[in-house]
Amino acid sequence: MSAAMAGAVDLSALKNKADNASRPPAANGPADDAAATGTPAVIDVTEATFQAEVVDRSMQVPVVVDLWAEWCGPCKQLSPVLERLAQESGGTWVLAKVDVDANPRIAQLFQVQSIPTVIAIAGGQPVEAFAGAQPEPQIRQWITALLDALREQLPGIQAAEQAAGAAEVEEEPEDPRFTAAEEALDNGDFAAAETAYRQILEAEPNNEQAQAALAQVRFSARAENADPAAIERADAAPDDLDAQLAASDAELATQQVEAAFDRLVRTVKRTSGDDRNRVRQHLIDMFELFPDGDPRVTNARRALASALF
């Protein structure tokens, strides 16, 4: 889902405006402040603060820039995931949120074509990016790969990891069942991760964390092999159940959320018995990938109820 940023981007384009902005004097740079006072994991950034909060800070740890807007539906799906992961990061990276409507020059600087767009800044330059909302497991893998690639270059990553490790000594140990599942997921072993989460649910059928994680793992495994051509094949064979399920996965993997939901609702209307139950369950599993209250899920649930009854 990620792509390296090609070529250099002159992030100093915003520096003059930042230099003219009033901000409290600091004895240390941003990274030193982070170590001394505990920089927030999530920062709202403007054109005036971009130089200090993003460019300067990226000399110590990666800064992941989330370009969003209030009117952007997918942003409301992606941003909470990024915020939660940043809070869990222990300071190994920082999330910088940029409202593109209020700060258009930043979006112009990166030549952003659509939002949400997420750009990782390291050493004062963009190094990785992706566009569109993504499933949480894929975002975790993206961040893990980013940290692995930059650990030797940015001293703040190891410093934060060492500090977090010292703190964990005093904390209660993590649930080893979830640790095993997350390690498998970080390694891209979806089958092992699914097995681990299944074992948790066998012992605790109502474990909501394991239920949500299992839904994410199952979709990530399917999305990895999703074939965009499946959509065309399914359109040509509306009665082919397997084709419709594969096409819905391909649509969801490419952020065509409403199209994926609509396809499965239409398929529910055309089927009955075990086939209908299979499609219904596939759609319900997809709903589990989205946060509570997502309007696309709400609308699709209504459409599904109408199709069933």
Rank of each mutant, 00 (worst) to 15 (best):
A184R: 07
I200G: 00
L150H: 09
Q211Y: 00
A180G: 04
A159Y: 06
R222V: 03
N206C: 01
G132K: 04
Q216N: 15
A213D: 03
A180D: 05
R218H: 03
I157D: 01
P173T: 11
G188Q: 04
G132I: 07
N206K: 14
A163D: 05
A145T: 12
L147F: 05
A167L: 15
E224F: 11
E202K: 07
E224N: 12
Y197Q: 06
N225D: 07
R151W: 02
E172D: 14
A196E: 00
P155G: 05
Q162G: 06
E194D: 11
L154E: 04
L147M: 05
Y197P: 00
P137S: 03
A215T: 09
N207R: 08
R151G: 00
E183P: 02
Q209C: 02
P173Y: 08
D186P: 04
A226L: 05
A184P: 06
N225Y: 02
E224T: 14
E171S: 13
E136R: 12
F219S: 01
R151Y: 04
E202S: 07
A192H: 02
A221I: 05
E172W: 05
V217I: 15
A149E: 08
E204T: 08
A160L: 06
Q209V: 13
R198H: 12
Q211T: 12
A145S: 13
A160S: 12
A223Q: 07
E182L: 13
L201R: 06
P135N: 11
V169T: 15
G188T: 11
Q209M: 09
E183S: 10
A181P: 03
R177Y: 03
I143Q: 02
E170K: 14
T195Q: 10
A226F: 03
Q158P: 00
I139Y: 03
A234M: 09
P155Y: 06
I157P: 01
I231Q: 01
Q199N: 13
Q162V: 11
Q138Y: 11
A210N: 02
D189A: 09
N225V: 11
G188P: 04
N207L: 04
I139F: 03
A181V: 09
E224W: 08
I157G: 02
R151E: 13
S220V: 14
R222G: 01
A159L: 09
A203K: 06
N207G: 06
R222C: 02
D227A: 04
Q211V: 10
G165H: 07
D175S: 06
P135V: 15
R218P: 03
D186N: 13
A230S: 15
Q153R: 14
E204P: 00
P176R: 10
N225C: 00
N225W: 00
A234Q: 07
N187Y: 01
A213G: 10
E171I: 03
T144Y: 09
Q162A: 14
E183W: 04
A192I: 06
Q134R: 13
A167T: 14
E161M: 11
Q138D: 11
A196T: 01
E170R: 10
A196V: 04
E202R: 06
Y197M: 08
E172H: 05
T144K: 13
A203N: 08
D186L: 14
